[in-house]
Amino acid sequence: MTTATLEKSPVAKTDTQNSPVPESNRTASPIVVPRHRFQRNDEGLLFTALLPGVPAENLDIQVENNYLRLKATAKAPEFEGYRKVHGEFTQSDYQAAFKIPSGIDASNIKAHLERGVLSLTLPKLEEAKPIRIQVN
C-alpha cells in the first residue's frame, strides 16, 4: 500500500477562486480543509479525513462532474458562563474537494464515519483492475 503525502494530495487547498462551492453557499464561519490522506491499493483508493466533532448528520458528500465534494459542520461544545482562556483550535467547518481519478467506479463510493474519522473507499472499475495473463 502506498501512501500519498499530505502535500502531494490532489485535494484543493483553500483556493477560493477555484473552489467548487459557489460564493453564495459559503458561510461566515472559518472553513478549513481537514487533515487527510490518500492510500492506494489493488482495490482502488482509500481517502481518510479527520473530522473531529462532526456527527454523521452534519456530513454531506456529493459526487458531480467527476468531482467529490465534502462539507461538514462540527458540533461545537457550548459552555455557558465559561470564558475561553486558551485556544489551540478554532471551531471550523470542513470542506474538501478532489477530482475522482479515472478508473474509479464513482457510483460505488462508500463512506464511513466513526469517532470523527471519515473513510471513503473508492473502488476501481472492474475493467481497470489489473488482469494477470497466464503464460503458457
Partner: peptide, 15 residues
Amino acid sequence: YLNQDGAKAVLHAPG
C-alpha cells in the same frame, strides 16, 4: 475554558 467554579478542557482526538 474557565469559570468561577472550575474548567472545561476540549481535546481533539479523532479515531
